[in-house]
Write a protein that binds this DNA or RNA. Structure first.
Lengths: 146, 146
DNA sequence: CTATAAATGAAAACTCTTTTCTTTTGTAAC
DNA sequence: GTTACAAAAGAAAAGAGTTTTCATTTATAG
């Protein structure tokens, strides 16, 4: 099962959040993009869609979606944050195009071995890991090659 | 070979940077810590050592050290940046204690397989990766357990 | 339809970082 | 050692990015 606009709306309502046109617009933009988006980019997109919205509302909505685990943050982006709808609901990671910001998900992060070795070697009780790959997608390779 | 204060100083001088007491102090603090440190923490440490310094100078020094590849940024820290001297000069990653911020390095990140599979599956030309583990170190496990 | 708690938007505040500009200083050449 | 000067320091201001405040508007349950 993957998240749809409808599903996200439903989860938000369940948790007691009202579904305002502004929130719908933010969700729609995030759902409709393959790229990771900064708050500013979401802001511009919503306004390009001729909806009025304040940047404050973008931030507030992002924070809610993030708290509910419905969006993921991309860490290899520059300064500032950048978000993406959570597509696979299971544990996963991102492969990010440095050209166009497109993000591909992958779930088979085979870190169990490394994690076990590290844990044994250091005595650390490992709680989480951060793994991201950055590269250039086929489209951007072509563009750069010409 | 590992970086020493002397080595770092020598590299900086080679690159045309002057060795001021302030820079020495920042290098000494970073070198002397197993933990990742925020600019603010470095600032406090230097001042605790009874050296006068401005926060601006901390930022400028950090930026130089970072440009020269002499310090590493830790990404799993909270908001804001956090730095650590570069200990292994080869490609490596960090295991970070969420209790005391201690950082352990590891070099055998066996991601070549994952990287190859990803590259074949997606057509991306992979350029870099970000890998960090977060856990609790033995000392902090004991403290928490009592 | 109404009541109300929640959401919005604008402005202000806040945090983190960089820039500007004047004064000070490390370093190389004498 | 002195001297000369480009580079660095420090203070204050400016600049990003994000959150808070507060008065007004609105979604939704009854």
């Amino acid at each position: 099962m993957r998240l749809s606009e409808r599903k996200i709306s439903s989860i938000m309502r369940q948790r007691g959040y009202k579904l305002t046109p502004q929130r719908r617009a933010v969700i729609k933009i995030i759902m409709g993009s393959d790229n990771h988006l900064t708050p500013e980019a979401i802001y511009q997109s919503v306004r390009d869609g001729h909806q009025n919205i304040g940047l404050t509302t973008i931030y507030r909505t992002i924070n809610i979606l993030s708290d509910l685990g419905l969006i993921c943050e991309v860490h290899t982006a520059g300064s500032g944050r950048s978000y993406l709808v959570r597509r696979p609901l299971e544990h996963h990671h991102h492969l990010v195009c440095s050209g166009c910001n497109r993000v591909v998900d992958f779930s088979n992060c085979d870190l169990a071995d490394i994690e076990r070795k590290l844990s044994e070697g250091t005595g650390f009780k490992i709680e989480e890991h951060l793994l991201e790959f950055v590269g250039i997608c086929p489209d951007c390779q072509q563009t750069a090659g010409t």
